[in-house]
Nucleic acid binder design. Structure first.
Length: 805
RNA sequence: GCGGACAUGGCGGAAUUGGCAGACGCGCUGGAUUUAGGUUCCAGUGGUUUAUACCGUGCAGGUUCAAGUCCUGUUGUCCGCACCA
């Protein structure tokens, strides 16, 4: 056969994309006898910049999995949609005086065109959009359920405020004291906010990680973020006649508590005001601490500062000793009780503070040298100077003292978390309205579910206000309403939901995206959820991933979710960096647009390069020059048409490698090692060319294996070769372990671990036979001459090694 | 500061987990085709060396017949947490 025509990727790709859209081959069925597989990538935020070459890394990797699974006979759901509420769109809209809904629509159209040009096997019939009222109706519905279960509440509190974005930020959105989006240092504001009680799920968010297959760094990061610790709360009596409650993870060291520290914001300070003899000094310190930015305050390795309270003391409950109380900003107001018992002998921070203020350091766990440093080991060491705890291990002492505290009624075992409740309101226009009205008489009243969705009002201006009020607050027609409960005058909530709201449940909507009666039918959820494989960025580990697990668990508790965890498996990809090795961004001028790559090399080549670029989990530097290698592979695959000969069996010379390739490509796709899968395909292709011919059976398998990576060209070649039907109708090729083994193998012959020669032997040959052959080898014999063989080793398939003297 | 990961040619990266380091690709060198460039094809490509041999996986030790892989120390890069009691 001769080459029929030139490889014109442009025509071919357009042709097959059209065919797939018409036939709907990638549309998943909610009723199928096949086993299901739900494969998910994080849906993008449709920005004005469009897609860059980083996005397709994740999409391509799971497209490989999705396409392979279909060929393996699964009913695969691989959906796509738009996480379209958010600040950049709103800012753009304000700047250009175009409504955000219009901007969003345009951006989505652009993104969709770009994605479709890459030939992903997405089920576009299930496309969703978080800004669609038919979608956000259910986001609001979930909020109402949270409210009804006392998991959404409004509270006046000190919050993180980004002065540049003009919104409140959740703790998870503050990175090193700066705004997650723009990097601006956050400020503090006391504002009334809607909060979600994610802390109620803290234990389960940690414990249930045991049952899911998430990569370790994701699990670790979530566990660290939630920050669970076990300890005790202990009440200390004070000379003021009241109590000071502390949280400690080391109740065993209570006898060593020689002073106490409370945060500068602690409520007791106001109560003790009249008793304080150094009130002015205390007030000055409070001001000093209050003025510090978050960044300064959390800076480690700075000198400890503080003020000793004059006029108030505490009593250590175990020994009745009066101990001083300090205020210091190393104690956080927001964690535990905002107060600690200080045990300088066994806590590094307390040790530093005690040294600075010349406070007594008492050893209560023997084993360290307190002249040098605090002894913080809890595995070894014996209790001393601790009355009834003396002689116990730390572990036993903890149990005993906790029991004692409970008996005395002055303490109790307690678990604490670093995780805070989720600040859920944003002072912006382009988000889901919170479906709550405030009535003077009835308080916060949920809207009737039947009135959902509560639509965003059509307005002409939506600038954020400098005061921190939502732009919706200025729309009195919209704000003023009637109370659903008493019918009296009431006002709507004017803050909107954060961008993380719509994405917290979107994967459920894909199961049944057009349902108007429920967020998805129970049967569809039962069938599809949990997601079998979810890939996304590490930057979402403590944001989207944690939030959505929380929402899903709540929905499970109220009978909506079918399981307790939403994602069976979570993997994560490394970022694609610009050609200069820096993060791709418009301001750095190093953004590579996939449209340009597709235009010049074609989607198939682009996809191949996306996986060939390197280790999926690590960051990779884009290099347009390197794409050539991937292009050559497809060119050569195309040219193979002219070499294909009749034959329904694999060529004997290629058979072993074909079986090996089926095995390797399959395994590698499953492990997201597309780089080595492509390398193996290239190796096989090189071998075919060396051999000079191939059978149709050889070619068929090569096309099937290439299909997930380069779906258009493999379909086209399948059609040209008249192999029948389309690749999407075929089955993934099978390998036989037996046939992956070479019959003849080359062994290295080592003398004292150095390779001196190579011999080819039958893979099945007996050890003695192989060793004799090695000894007989000319080069080896030369090195063995006159030497004494002390040891002979044979590693089948690898080498033989003679140890000589 | 604590915790984790990593360190391999000019470059991106492989190495079945202790068994021939550098697969595959880019780049580079030489050659063929071409008026030329590009494409394509052939050969080569870790370093020193004429063959032979020696040296090579950040650095210094160690274990082993055998170490990129294991152990100890050390340096550097990246990530996470960042006074959470």
């Amino acid at each position: 056969m001769t080459v029929v025509n030139e490889y014109n990727f442009e025509t071919i790709e357009r042709k097959w994309q059209q065919k797939w859209a018409e036939s709907g081959v990638f549309e998943a069925s909610n009723e199928s006898t096949k086993p299901k597989f739900y494969c998910l990538v994080e849906f993008p935020y449709p920005s004005g910049q469009g897609l860059h070459v980083g996005h397709p890394r994740s999409y391509t990797a799971l497209d490989l999995v999705a396409r392979k699974r279909r060929l393996e006979g699964y009913n695969v759901l691989y959906p796509m949609g738009w996480d379209a509420f958010g600040l950049p769109t709103e800012n753009y809209a304000i700047q250009h005086k175009i409504h955000p809904a219009v901007v969003t629509k345009d951006n989505i159209a652009n993104f969709k065109k770009q994605l479709q040009a890459l030939g992903y096997s997405f089920d576009w019939s299930r496309e969703i959009n978080t800004t669609d009222p038919e979608y956000y109706k259910w986001t609001q519905w979930i909020f109402l359920q949270l409210f009804k279960h006392d998991l959404a509440y409004k509270k006046e509190m000190n919050v993180n405020w980004c002065p540049s974005c003009k919104v409140v930020l959740a703790n998870e959105e503050v990175i090193n004291g700066g705004c997650e989006r723009c990097g601006t240092q956050v400020e503090h504001k006391v504002k009334s906010q809607w909060m979600l009680r994610i802390t109620a799920y803290a234990d389960r968010l940690i414990d249930d990680l045991e049952g899911v297959d998430f990569i370790d760094r994701v699990k670790t990061q979530q566990i660290n973020w939630i920050g669970r610790s076990y300890g005790a709360e202990v009440s200390f009596a004070t000379s003021a006649g009241d109590e000071l409650k502390v949280y400690t993870t080391r109740p065993d060291t209570l006898f060593g508590a020689t002073y106490m520290v409370i945060s500068p914001e602690h409520a007791s300070l106001a109560q003790w005001n009249n008793l304080l003899e150094n009130q002015a000094e205390v007030a000055a310190y409070q001001e000093f601490a209050g003025k510090k930015s978050d960044f300064e305050r959390t800076e480690v390795n700075k000198e400890k500062t503080g003020v000793r309270l004059a006029g108030v003391q505490a009593i250590n409950p175990v020994n009745g000793q009066a101990i001083p109380i300090f205020i210091s900003d190393y104690v956080l107001a927001t964690y535990g009780t905002g107060a600690i018992m200080a045990v300088p002998g066994h806590d590094t921070r307390d040790y530093e503070f005690a040294k600075k203020f010349d406070l007594p350091i008492v050893e209560v766990v023997a084993g360290g040298d307190l002249n040098q440093a605090a002894f913080t080991d809890i595995e070894e060491g014996t209790m001393v100077n601790s009355g009834f705890l003396n002689g116990l291990s730390v572990k036993d002492a903890k149990a005993k003292i906790t029991a004692w505290l409970e008996e005395q009624g002055i303490g109790t075992a307690k678990t604490n978390f670093k995780l805070r409740d989720w600040v859920f309101s944003r002072q912006r226009y382009w988000g889901e309205p919170i479906p709550i009205v405030h009535c003077e008489k009835c308080g916060y009243v949920p809207m009737p579910e039947s009135d959902l969705p509560l639509r965003l009002p059509e307005v002409t201006t939506y600038e954020p206000t400098a005061t921190g009020e939502s732009p919706l607050a200025t729309l009195s027609d919209w704000v003023n309403t009637t109370c659903p409960q008493c019918g009296g005058p009431a006002k709507r909530e004017t803050d909107t939901m954060p961008q993380w709201a719509g994405s917290s449940w979107y994967f459920m909507r894909y199961a049944d995206p057009h349902n108007s009666e429920a967020l998805a039918s129970p049967a569809s959820l039962e069938y599809w959820v949990p997601v079998d494989w979810y890939n996304g960025g590490m930057e979402h580990t403590t944001l989207h991933l944690l939030y959505s697990r929380f929402w899903y668990k709540f929905l499970y508790d109220i009978g909506v979710s079918p399981t307790s965890e939403p994602y069976a498996k979570r993997t994560s990809h490394g970022m694609i960096l610009g050609e200069n090795g820096e993060k791709m961004s418009k301001s750095r001028g190093n953004v590579v647009n996939p449209d340009d790559i597709v235009g010049e090399f074609g989607a198939d080549t682009m996809r191949l390069y996306e996986v060939f670029i390197g280790d999926f989990e690590k960051p990779a530097t884009w290099n347009t020059a390197s794409i050539k290698g991937c292009q050559r592979y497809l060119d050569r695959l195309w040219t193979l048409q002219s070499l294909a000969e009749d034959g329904d069996a694999y060529s004997p010379e290629l058979e072993t490698m074909i079986h090996q390739t089926i095995r390797k490509v399959g395994n590698d796709i499953e492990q997201l090692k597309g780089n080595t899968a492509v390398a193996q395909l290239m190796t096989l292709l090189n071998r075919v060319y060396d051999h000079g011919s191939l059978t149709h059976a050889d070619y068929r398998t090569l096309l099937l294996l290439t299909n997930p990576f380069a779906p258009h060209v493999s379909e086209e070649l399948w059609e040209i070769m008249q192999y029948g039907g389309t690749v999407t109708d075929q089955a993934w090729p099978q390998y036989e372990e037996e046939k992956c083994r070479e019959k003849m193998v080359e062994l290295a012959v080592q003398i004292n671990g150095k390779v001196r020669s190579r011999i080819v032997v039958n893979a099945e040959a007996a050890a003695s036979e192989v060793l004799e052959m090695a000894k007989a080898d000319e080069a080896a014999a030369r090195h063995l001459e006159g030497k004494n063989i002390v040891k002979e080793l044979y590693v089948p398939g690898r080498l033989v090694n003679f140890v000589v003297k």
